[in-house]
Nucleic acid binder design. Structure first.
Length: 473
DNA sequence: GTAGGGTTAG
């Protein structure tokens, strides 16, 4: 089949199968075996610009595959075979560098960009802005952005997101306001930035403004990302507003007949689960056509957070039957359920199996769940042993789980020891003082209880009043 | 000559 081996034909195939590793690898080997990726004077082989085009497409095709180094490897092959990189070569490379764990690849790439004279390409500039912002190098992100003569909306959006990622919402908002034309990503990036920085109600305000622009004739329609972002702000908002706004937005989604995608459904399940409305969460879950692991994670969490232990574990079993691969989040949810249900042995067994059978290495949160599980059951020796055996230093969440158990069981000795450590770690956390004081009061050590309350006042902390929710119908 | 950049889930 000589026709299907021509560079033009293989290029078309590459473009068609961009997101499919197996096909890409097959086409890649075919390109290699036909010598299309080598620079050669043979007129029958690919011309120089065709070779560059093939490499560019291959690099892009390898973005997001499991072998994250592949784009860079291809780039070095490209250089070695005298296929000159052009402005199209760099955006995917910079994106791959953004997805890597360190900013180290930024400097050589930026240098290549300058050397090849393509620094003024708008696509490259935007990629560099988001690269620098991704790694917290906000000054360089800004510098690149400011050198753009007339930034288009995408460049603005990258910079807004960059400000949001680095906690500078002031700059994000003023840049947003200065934009000549805003699109849905501009709005979503601001809302997302507020959410990322814990300013949930500001994010919701922005969403309200967005849908209100309707009246002013410059309406920008929210998309899936917008809804997911604002719903997650609702889910994280404290107090009554949370459910109110969440329901408003859910109502809006229903009225506008917006498709219940995996992302959107998951955000709704998460919202209702956190609000204590398990049945609403379950309704959303039932209505969904497309689900992802995250959807199941959110539903299992919703059940376990609301004490539906049996249902949570059943759903976990169902998830495995559907051949979905549990993630770290899944195990947090399932271990939490075990804690609620006092299923000590089952929980420990699960904890052991997560790395053995599912290849999920326990992180801090999993240890927190198991410490909670052991502590609630009064197994303090086992809990402290587990903490000692951890491959990293326990953080406040793990110690907090132990402290909570000491409170339940009136274990004052250990409680005071753990509590002291915690107050050093989180001197501003009112709950820690309250629990520690309660442990001492419970064992009638009033002097200590008073001393802890005193220390709390001294640290300038006031207890935030608690509230509870009752689901009527 | 052709392709490419920004937002979303516990």
């Amino acid at each position: 089949m000589p026709r299907s081996s021509s560079p033009e034909c293989l290029l078309q195939l590459l473009q068609r199968f961009l997101k499919r590793p197996n096909q890409i690898n097959q086409i890649h080997s075919r390109l290699i075996s036909h010598g299309h990726l080598l620079h050669s004077p043979n007129p029958r082989s690919a011309s120089k610009w065709m070779t560059t085009l093939l490499y560019n497409t291959l690099i892009r095709a390898h973005l997001g595959f499991s072998q994250a180094h592949k784009p860079f490897l291809l780039f070095t092959h490209m250089l070695a075979h005298q296929a000159p990189p052009n402005s199209h070569t760099f955006p995917p490379l910079i994106k791959a560098a953004s997805a890597s764990s360190s900013p180290n690849l930024g400097a050589p790439l930026h240098t290549q960009v300058v050397k090849r004279g393509v620094m003024h390409d708008p696509f490259i500039q935007t990629s560099l802005v988001s690269f620098y912002a991704q790694f917290g190098i906000l000054c360089d992100a800004r510098k690149v952005f400011e050198e753009i003569a007339e930034p288009c909306v995408v460049a603005y959006n990258a910079m807004i997101d960059g400000f949001g990622k680095n906690g500078d919402m002031g700059s994000a908002v003023s840049l947003f306001q200065s934009m000549p034309k805003k699109d849905v990503v501009s709005w979503t990036s601001v809302i997302n930035g507020f959410g990322r920085n814990g300013s949930f109600s500001e994010g919701i305000q922005f969403f309200k403004m967005m849908v209100h622009e309707d009246l002013m004739g410059c309406f920008v329609k929210p998309n899936e990302a917008t809804y997911v972002t604002v719903l997650s702000s609702c889910a994280n908002l404290d107090g009554w507003g949370s459910l109110y706004w969440g329901k408003q937005i859910h109502g809006y989604v229903i009225r506008k007949e917006i498709e219940l995608t995996a992302f959107l459904g998951t955000a709704l399940i998460d919202l209702y689960g956190k609000m204590g409305y398990v049945s609403s969460a379950a309704n959303v879950f039932k209505k969904m056509v497309v689900t992802e692991v995250c959807t199941w994670n959110a539903m299992i969490s919703a059940l376990s957070l609301n004490g539906k232990v049996r249902e949570a574990l059943d759903l976990f079993e169902k998830m495995k039957r559907e051949r979905l691969q549990p993630t770290a989040v899944t195990f947090v949810a399932v271990l939490t359920a075990c804690g609620r249900g006092k299923l000590v042995n089952f929980g420990l067994e699960l904890f052991r199996s997560m790395s053995n059978d599912f290849g999920v290495e326990p992180i801090m949160e999993h240890y927190g769940c198991v410490v909670d599980l052991l502590g609630r059951a009064g197994l303090f020796l086992e809990a402290t042993e587990l903490i000692k055996s951890m491959p990293f230093e326990p953080d406040a969440s793990v110690l907090g789980a132990l402290l909570g158990s000491c409170n339940i069981h009136g274990t004052a000795g250990l409680g005071n020891e753990v509590g002291q450590k915690l107050l050093e770690l989180q001197p501003q956390h009112c709950g820690r003082y309250v629990v520690l004081s309660s442990i001492n009061a419970g064992t009638e050590r009033w002097d200590r209880a008073a001393a802890v309350r005193q220390a709390m006042v001294h640290a300038g902390i006031r207890k935030i009043p608690a509230y509870s929710v009752i689901d009527v119908n």
